[in-house]
Design a protein around this nucleic acid. Structure first.
Lengths: 339, 339
DNA sequence: TTGTAGGCGTTATCAT
DNA sequence: ATGATAACGCCTACAA
């Protein structure tokens, strides 16, 4: 009866060398004679040997695996982030273990523990939900605890802490700039729609309010609305709330499309009577009519920076890495704006 | 200086028992006296000990991990499938290692090997791309090879093989039924748009052709078009190809929205002059106007069945499991059809 | 350049 | 019910 899995001892025996030599060959040590290397490699190729990752992990305490945590993967922004992260990590030979935590603290903590228990080499948190809402700092304590074990990287969220590194968008500037453009094109009653109190939502609001202030447009609290993150919910809410506005800035494209639906249902012309700007430049903005002007957050670039920094930390042991990197956004103009 | 990580020996020493006893407590063996259990548990809680998964894996050759392979996660269908799979697997205590393989054979093989090398307990392949196109059976050989090591589950694709289990939609019937409805509502020149030659695309085409045949509608090859999977590409293609049609069935919602854009650009009324049906019932169908009638493939149910069967196989070692399960689709009617 | 032996942290099989 | 000890497969000083 054939042995099921072959190990380093089998190779050593077949190649008539010691396991140490086999190990050296496998790990590319230079202290092996070319002749021996060839001999061992031949055997390895022949029987198709691959080292047992558990045994490797036990000694080295790593499995070349990165933990990826998202609130939900069923979201265009998250899934494209994961797409880029996985792609770039794979290039460096790292695999991903994925966890979906939901938006509640308990799930975040539980999934973080789960991933850490797998002894990942690093942890990447995707989304500004992991930054908390800025009010209760202790809500991000679990991140700093995790960072005591492995470096933690946050995509699009700001978290202070030793061994935690963040890459964020310049959301303040992006919204500031687009608000200014709206103002300069004669819009005065600009609706600001957001679905959360996340770090990124807060920054967007700051940009909005700053632009109004700088242009001496009176700030009207009723124009800052908190909405549910679905197209129809936004449409219906606008229909029932009776606030007048001549422009909309939404914290994501779903919400913006909701506003667009409202306009089309009311027979309001877009962009002539109302200008609409979304966020994330996701594929949903291509489906509507007119197509959505949206702020692109350069997610691929964010992921690129994140992975590069991650590799720098865990592979090159670089110290003194910047805690925070800021990536600019870009306004992608389509049919819902006239500027 | 404090020891960094504590192990079973530390617990044993602190609780004044042997490591065997600690192991029994941790694994919930019933051959431990209540008194000892309490004593050991107290120590474990106090110092926050968790077993080293690598050491466990070394002995048991498993880490309670499932491999998830998708062509790309940046796609509404795949990401929602992964969402449901992860959620349901987590309930059973299994974690996911994710791989994005692309649509080419080489990437699929490479990522499969990568995941297998991690000693996952099972492998789930998401998407009909893994079923090949039916012409070259050897293109799915790597799946059968993988199935020699762990059970393989295919979501929405049919692959024959020992130890491989599939859960698919009844795409033939779904498209057949909707085609019949179109015919009964007076449509005769029904455009069939697909972006691939995957297993699922082939089944959809079968349903389409069968319905035509059963209703003695002449089959026109120019009405079966192969398109690129983007909204604008479809719109432009239809604009330039000069084929007349009065209805559209698309193999996904992006393509359907492309057809809708074409109609709106040409001033063709939907659904009065052209009826349009998409596939997958994804969120993009809500963004367009009128909203898209689409075939819902009940992806959550597919994922549910997949996970249940997976658990049955790897945990209850059930033999004689059905190789293939078929889940019906459902037509979700919205504004692009008048039936 | 090569081989020997100890350690990584569990689980499981024996005794006791 | 409990404890001693041998796997599990690899890496790596250290020795030769």
């Amino acid at each position: 009866m054939k042995k099921e899995v072959i190990n380093i001892y089998d190779i050593a025996e077949m190649a008539k060398v010691s396991i140490a030599t086999v190990s050296r060959v496998v790990n590319g040590s230079d202290k092996v004679s070319e002749k021996t290397r060839k001999k061992v490699m031949a055997v390895i190729e022949e029987v198709g040997y691959t080292p047992n990752v558990f045994a490797q992990g036990l000694g080295l305490n790593t499995m070349h695996t990165i933990g990826l945590l998202v609130p939900t993967i069923s979201d265009l922004y998250m899934s494209s982030a994961v797409y880029y992260l996985e792609e770039k990590l794979a290039k460096y030979g790292y695999d991903c273990i994925l966890g979906c935590s939901g938006f509640e603290l308990e799930g975040k903590q539980r999934q973080t523990d789960m991933i850490l228990s797998k002894h990942v080499d690093a942890l990447i948190l995707v989304g500004s939900t992991y930054a908390g809402n800025g009010e209760r700092v202790e809500d991000t304590d679990y991140i700093r605890e995790a960072a005591e074990q492995v470096p933690v990287f946050v995509v699009n969220g700001n978290v202070q802490g030793e061994n935690v590194f963040v890459t964020v968008n310049d959301d303040v500037k992006a919204v500031y700039d687009v608000t200014v453009q709206m103002i300069e094109h004669g819009h005065e009653r600009i609706l600001f729609l957001t679905d959360s109190q996340s770090y990124s939502a807060i920054k967007k609001r700051m940009g909005y309010e700053k632009a109004l202030e700088d242009h001496r447009i009176p700030f009207r609290p009723e124009l800052e609305m908190h909405v549910e993150n679905t197209v129809h919910a936004v449409r219906d809410l606008l229909q029932n709330c009776n606030v007048a506005f001549d422009a909309v800035i939404a914290s994501n494209d779903e919400i913006a499309v909701g506003a667009l639906k409202y306009a089309s249902k009311k027979g309001i012309l877009v962009p002539d009577e109302i200008a609409i700007v979304g966020y994330n430049n996701s594929s949903i903005g291509i489906a509507c009519e007119p197509e959505l002007t949206s702020i692109d957050n350069h997610i691929e670039q964010i992921c690129h920076e994140t992975v590069e920094r991650l590799i720098a930390v865990i592979e090159r042991k670089e110290k003194n890495l910047e805690h925070k990197i800021v990536i600019p956004c870009e306004l992608v103009k389509r049919g819902t704006t006239d500027f």
